[in-house]
Every structure is written in structure tokens, then in C-alpha cells.
């Protein structure tokens, strides 16, 4: 899931290998799938070279590449990356902690669900990106509204998926654990929480995507550092090449965190491999 996806609740994918297909690991990537993207880039380059696509509308792929390289060399890109990543990390941690705690409370206790779930379900229907005006009024135009936006983006998907994951625990397994003499605490630790992990990891991936998306929107507001600042600055000087570099970096960052979660999934859900 990339940062352009914001969902609420999705089904966890099982890590199982496709049955009857080629054994995993031995399958070669289908190189033919690279043909059309490559052709599009070539077309883009050709359009730029012939002047059909003017530089002040969209820079050519070659220019973007060169600009990206030089921005990386003079340290601008690295600094921006660090600032933006730091914002996502801080905001995501706050939001994930909030969504996680609330999800546990409403998933594990009936009264918790009665008290917590209704307001959360109401709030989640608000488009959280639309909260910017309020956040600016509340927190000013510094770092705080950006972090608050990221936190709000991350909290809801995690809450919803954790709650759903806990609630769909197989009652037959809970009953077996009860017969085997497990205490309530043991049933939560050995049955309920592990059963919720696949769904919670889906929530984690969606939450990370939402965090990046929130950051991109948040950084449009009066940023004095970070990738959003880089992009906004470039816009004022009609530097479309820098804008595209910034967008590519956002995409790469989103893909990287997504890959991290997938790696965690493979490790944590290795019991699913048949």
C-alpha cells in the first residue's frame, strides 16, 4: 500500500504461497511488465526534448535525474528528508499510541467498546485533512499542526483494524483455552492478541500510508524545512524539476516504510506459511 491509499479496514493478506503455482522464490519477475512504464518515460523525454512539453510545465526525466543528484550531493535533499521523516516518526508514534490504546480498550472490554467506539466512529467520518484550519487556529503555524495532522491520520486506521482484529477472534479457540484452564489474562495473551495481529498489521500499513499523506498536506502550510518546503520553494521559481524530485522522494519514503512493515509481517506471521 503506498501513501496514495487511505482505507479504513482492509482484509489481511495471508502470507501463504499461491497453491499450484510455481514455488516461491524461483519465480522470475515478469520483465514484460516494465515495457509500458519504460515507454512512457521515453515518451515523456521525447516530448520534453522536442519542446512539446515546456520546461516550466514539467521538466524532462533527464533533468529531474540530474537535479535529484545535485540536490543529494549538496545536502539539501538529505536535510529535507531528515526533517520530513522526523515529523512522520513523531506524529505517527503519537497517533499509533493513541489508536493502539483506544483499540485495545474498546476491543478487550465491553464497557470500553460502549464508551470509546461511538465517538471514534463518529470522528472518523470527518476527513481529517480538512482539520487543518482548526489545527492552525489551535496550534499556530509551527511544527505542532503538522504533527497533529499526521497523528490524526495514523490513529484511526490503527484503531479500526485493531478493534476489528480483536473482535473477530475465533470463539472456538477461546472456548478451548478456557477448558484448558487459561485465565482471562492468558486467554488475551495467547488467543485474543495473536489472533488480532494480522488485522492490526494491515492497520499499521494503512496508518503509515495515511501518515505520509497527512505530512504532505501538512507541509504545504508554511513549512520552513522538509520536503514540502523544498517543493513549495521550487514552485515559486518555476523549478518543476525540483518539484518532481520532491514527489519522487515522498513516494520512495512511503514505499520504504511499507516494505519495512511487510518485512515485520513476514517474520511475525510466519506461522501462516503452510
Amino acid at each position: 500500500m503506498s501513501i496514495s491509499t487511505t482505507g479504513a479496514v482492509a482484509r489481511p493478506e495471508t502470507a501463504a504461497a499461491p497453491r499450484g503455482g510455481a514455488p516461491p522464490g524461483r519465480r522470475l519477475p515478469d520483465l514484460a511488465r516494465w515495457l509500458s512504464p519504460l515507454a512512457l518515460v521515453l515518451l515523456w523525454q521525447a516530448a520534453s526534448a522536442t519542446g512539446v512539453l515546456p520546461e516550466d510545465k514539467l521538466a524532462s526525466p533527464a533533468t529531474v535525474l540530474v537535479t535529484g543528484w545535485s540536490l543529494a550531493l549538496d545536502g539539501q535533499l538529505g536535510d529535507a528528508l531528515l526533517v520530513s521523516s522526523g515529523r512522520v516518526a513523531a506524529g505517527f508514534l503519537a497517533g499509533a499510541a493513541m489508536g493502539g490504546v483506544l483499540g485495545l480498550v474498546s476491543g478487550l472490554s465491553r464497557w470500553g467498546e460502549r464508551l470509546v467506539d461511538p465517538p471514534v466512529q463518529m470522528l472518523r467520518t470527518l476527513p481529517h485533512l480538512g482539520l487543518i484550519p482548526l489545527f492552525i487556529l489551535w496550534f499556530g503555524i509551527g511544527e505542532e499542526p503538522k504533527l497533529a495532522l499526521v497523528a490524526a491520520g495514523a490513529a484511526f486506521p490503527l484503531y479500526l483494524n485493531l478493534h476489528a482484529g480483536i473482535r473477530q477472534t475465533d470463539p472456538a479457540l477461546l472456548e478451548a483455552a478456557r477448558v484448558l484452564g487459561c485465565t482471562r489474562y492468558e486467554r488475551i495473551a495467547h488467543v485474543v492478541l495473536p489472533a488480532a495481529v494480522p488485522q492490526a498489521l494491515v492497520g499499521l500499513r494503512i496508518a503509515l500510508g495515511a501518515a505520509w499523506l497527512s505530512l504532505i498536506v501538512g507541509e504545504q502550510v508554511n513549512a520552513d524545512a522538509g520536503i514540502g518546503f523544498l517543493i513549495n520553494n521550487a514552485r515559486e521559481f518555476l523549478r518543476t524539476d525540483v518539484v518532481v524530485v520532491g514527489l519522487l522522494v515522498y513516494a520512495l519514503l512511503g514505499l520504504t516504510t511499507d516494505a519495512l512493515v511487510r518485512a515485520v509481517e513476514r517474520r511475525v506471521l510466519r506461522w501462516q506459511a503452510r
Binding site: A172, A177, V179, G181, H190, W271
Partner: peptide, 23 residues
């Protein structure tokens, strides 16, 4: 002790941990 029609093992615990679950 009960053995059910379905084994009802916890898929996320290794076999030996399932055997001593709750002990």
C-alpha cells in the same frame, strides 16, 4: 480434559506450546 471434533490448536503457537497451553 476435552478433545473437540476440530483440534482447535492455536495456529500462532508451535505444537509443543499448544500441548502445554494453560499448564
Amino acid at each position: 480434559s476435552v478433545a473437540f471434533q476440530q483440534p482447535r490448536l492455536l495456529p500462532w503457537r508451535r505444537v509443543w506450546r499448544n500441548v502445554v497451553l494453560g499448564l
